[in-house]
């Protein structure tokens, strides 16, 4: 069985299904897939979602980044998207460095503006990662850039809720503070997901396949959303090269 949609299209559809009508949702730097997912949700079940796409003036109501920053700081941001070089079982992510010795990293990354605040401020955060592998999903990250959970006596408005990859969706079990497998994306199998994840995904015996993207979802993503992204200068090159190119004639 082959997919007739790309990994990016699949992930944008899966992300769109998580968006709630009426909430304030924002995507950050270099977050093309979440931006497409937000716009798709607005075409479907969430016509009144307030969308902010950092880096796209058409989707930024504020003149200064300070206003966005403090909107989140006040606890008014409903949904945000993050990614990481490494993600671990406890929902910690790493955008800083890879290597066993933090003073002598093998590779350094730029860190992430705001993630150390937004991951705690947004009511829900979704982790997205296009590479589902054992080097991306590790037992313990080499550097915690933001923590999945915090002690109950610290001020925090929200936590990660889902992890979305081309192979699967995980959800955060906040009771245990652990990520667990929620669904998989055929033709990937549960065994393949387990094989490519560097930590225990919990009891996977009753995990079901996620519903494949529907014709309506893919149609809107490839037409209305793609056109909107190009017209509004919202990752236009990415939209041209990643949305609608596997369409069957």
């Amino acid at each position: 069985m082959e997919r007739d949609y790309s990994n990016e299209e699949l992930m944008a559809v899966l992300i769109s299904r998580e968006v709630r009508n009426g909430e304030i949702a924002a995507s950050g730097a270099l977050s093309m897939i979440p931006a497409a997912g937000l716009l798709l949700a607005r075409e479907l079940h969430a016509p009144n979602v307030e969308i902010m796409i950092l880096g796209s003036p058409a989707f930024m109501p504020f003149k200064t980044s300070r206003q966005f920053h403090f909107l989140a700081h006040r606890g008014e941001l409903g949904l945000f998207f993050v990614s990481g070089v490494q993600i671990d079982r406890q929902g910690n992510y790493n955008l800083h460095m890879v290597g066993e010795d933090q003073d002598h990293p093998k590779v350094r990354f730029p860190g992430g503006y705001g993630g150390g605040m937004l991951y705690y401020a947004a009511r829900r955060s979704i982790i997205f990662r296009t590479e589902h592998s054992r080097r991306a999903f590790v037992e313990k990250v080499d550097f915690i850039s933001a923590a999945g959970t915090s002690p109950p006596d610290t001020l925090r408005y929200g936590n990660p809720c889902k992890v979305i990859t081309p192979l699967a969706t995980m959800h955060m079990d906040l009771q245990e503070g652990l990520l667990k497998l929620e669904s998989y994306n055929p033709p990937a199998t549960v065994a393949e997901v387990v094989e490519n994840t560097g930590f225990d995904l919990g009891d996977v015996s009753s995990v079901q396949a996620a519903p494949a993207p529907t014709e309506e979802e893919l149609g809107l993503l490839r037409d209305a959303v793609r056109r909107k992204m190009i017209e509004t200068d919202t990752y236009p090159d990415w939209a041209r090269s990643h949305l609608g190119n596997l369409r069957i004639a």
């Binding site: 150390g116 605040m117 937004l118 401020a121 610290t154």
Partner: peptide, 13 residues
């Protein structure tokens, strides 16, 4: 006072 950063390696350093 700032929100976040609790539990990070950034804070440790």
């Amino acid at each position: 006072p700032v929100l976040g950063l609790v539990g990070t390696d950034l804070l440790k350093r």
